[in-house]
Design a protein around this nucleic acid. Structure first.
Lengths: 212, 212
DNA sequence: TTTGTAAGCAAGCAGGTACTTGCATACACG
DNA sequence: CGTGTATGCAAGTACCTGCTTGCTTACAAA
């Protein structure tokens, strides 16, 4: 056996990162072992000795990037929905943008390489759950309307984020400016779920007492 | 030369359709000329004689499918936004679902095969324009709020449609039931752009006169 | 010093891939 | 009938791809 910080690990890391880059550029079939080896500055044989096969290597790449990615959280006790959501959407946009190449290739290869499915789906699922439970909390706190279609609204915001990340590089002119995107999506979303503008917990309390 | 309905055309069509199927399954690199020839029930040589090269063939496939696809229209004079939008979204969902495999592969190959870009983008662009101008008409008719972020709202609905088509096969459980999807997206969208429920031209006139 | 281990290097193998060539067949039109 | 055209078939070329083998070098621990 070998220790965790043995020289092998150096090669291993370098190969993994190189493979990720090459795969992001060319997809599975385009990511030849020769290309990866060159990109890693490593002999092609080392690659097979370390990972066994091209398939195993690229699977390792995916699980590696999968475990590194941590879904960002929304506050348990909502205070300022607009600010909190804008920050959350912004963070997701940033992370997803860096993973776009990997995502777009895995999605197109799910049919032929089922092990790619987990990577392509999991993040989206988590984001969905996180957002959904946050909206429920908003409703419980009286910050969002009670009669909205929570599931669909959530899908629409998540789709908007994904759509931005996936589509902007191809059709840049239809999207809101990149630095405003998060804010814009959230503003529209808030209207959709019945949150008035600039309505924080404090403002909400005032308004509620005025109404009743 | 040859007439348009010469025997060649038969082969040509068969090859084009077979190529579309194989490409939809396996992507560019996976769509080998052998596979396509077998799928078309045609000798591989015929394929090269007719299209010259694999690249040219698959480019022909894309432009073929591109010209066949006609973007569905929204009415010039909006009467019942909910119904009109639901029908439009539904039609788009249906068409896009059939094109999903082609779309997902072209998007992942845009970097390496720029001619795929047009196919991957154009439809989305058209849908966007169509929806945008419709919303503007809604506003002009007093059927939608005036203070909304039209561009962003439109992006969000279009993204939701794309997201549904792309994501549902992979993460089916987060989306609204397929037969309700169009209606649900539109309901949420209407709220986002300030259209009250069941507000048609007639109802709108009544309400407006009541207010003023 | 001995031994084990990670890595490089050169060569090769078996199969696949895009594409070509030469030749045979079938059919349509004059 | 003869001629052109579309297609099939067999074979081959040049290259690429994943993967293997045999051998060498360098270093590190016992």
């Amino acid at each position: 056996m070998f220790a965790l910080d043995s020289p092998t690990m150096i090669s291993r890391e370098r190969i993994l990162e190189a493979a990720a880059r090459v795969y992001a550029k060319h997809g599975f079939r385009g990511a030849t072992t020769r290309l990866i080896a060159i990109e890693a500055g490593v002999n092609e044989v080392t690659l097979f000795r370390t990972f066994g096969s091209k398939g195993a290597l690229l699977e390792a790449v995916l699980t590696h990037n999968d475990t590194q990615f941590e879904i960002s959280k929304l506050p348990l006790r909502p205070v300022d929905p607009a600010a909190e959501l804008t920050s959350w959407v912004g963070r997701n946009l940033d992370t997803l943008r860096t993973m776009r190449p990997l995502l777009v290739h895995t999605t197109s290869e799910v049919d032929e390489r089922p092990e790619a499915a987990k990577f392509a789906c999991e993040g989206r699922h988590h984001a969905h759950d996180e957002l959904r439970s946050y909206i429920t909390r908003l409703q419980a706190a009286g910050l969002a309307a009670a009669d909205i279609d929570v599931g669909t609204s959530v899908v629409m915001l998540v789709s908007s984020v994904m759509g931005d990340v996936m589509g902007r590089p191809m059709v840049p002119d239809v999207y809101p400016p990149m630095d405003e995107a998060a804010m814009r999506y959230v503003q529209c979303f808030l209207r959709m779920i019945g949150v008035q503008k600039n309505k924080s917990i404090a403002a909400n309390k005032k308004q509620r007492s005025r109404i009743t």
